[in-house]
């Protein structure tokens, strides 16, 4: 990708996020998702909080359907791809799938809290933590005891 746009969403409003760091010159877009607004009935206080986060970021702020707005923005900037950050939301995956029909999408990850790629049993927190703890402390916890 030579001329990507950044699609900024609600799981990474960090001005030092990987998308901003890796592509400091790329035009960036936030979309207030009409679908989510209708579904979640978010209160004004939540919207104000998000808006305060947005105004500290170098993003254009729009409102509408996410896929349509992102693709329009990409066309406006003659982009050859879309860069965004990872999100666990199923809607995110759905949007990425549709976007990929028009343009390549690169999904960047923020630094992991637990830097471990192997299998972790998620049936209960205790089982997760048994594996995750050492990685969360970067191995330091046992050293200090």
């Amino acid at each position: 990708m030579i001329r990507p746009i950044l699609w900024v969403h609600g799981d990474c409003l960090d001005p030092q996020g990987p998308h901003f760091k890796n592509h400091p010159q790329a035009p960036a877009l936030w979309v207030w998702d009409e679908r989510l607004l209708a579904e979640w009935q978010l209160s004004l206080k939540r919207l104000v909080f998000i808006y305060e986060c947005l105004v500290e970021l170098p993003v254009v702020i729009r409102r509408g359907g996410v896929v349509a707005e992102v693709l329009t923005f990409a066309t406006e900037h003659q982009a050859d791809g879309i860069v965004t950050t990872a999100s666990p939301s199923p809607l995110f995956r759905q949007y990425v799938k549709v976007l990929e029909q028009s343009l390549p999408v690169t999904i960047l990850s923020v630094e992991p809290f637990v830097d471990y790629d192997g299998h972790i049993d998620l049936a209960r927190f205790s089982r997760y933590w048994r594996v995750a703890q050492a990685y969360a402390f970067k191995g330091d916890l046992n050293d200090s005891k």
């Binding site: 978010l42 209160s43 004004l44 206080k45 909080f49 105004v55 500290e56």
Partner: peptide, 27 residues
């Protein structure tokens, strides 16, 4: 900012116009 957000999202403002003292942003 609060006034503007309220105007842009009138449905939310009509449900409850109150805003939290918790501020957004990295700072």
């Amino acid at each position: 900012l609060i006034r503007y957000v309220g105007e842009q999202f009138p449905e939310a403002a009509a449900r409850d116009g109150r805003v939290s003292p918790i501020r957004g942003g990295r700072r």
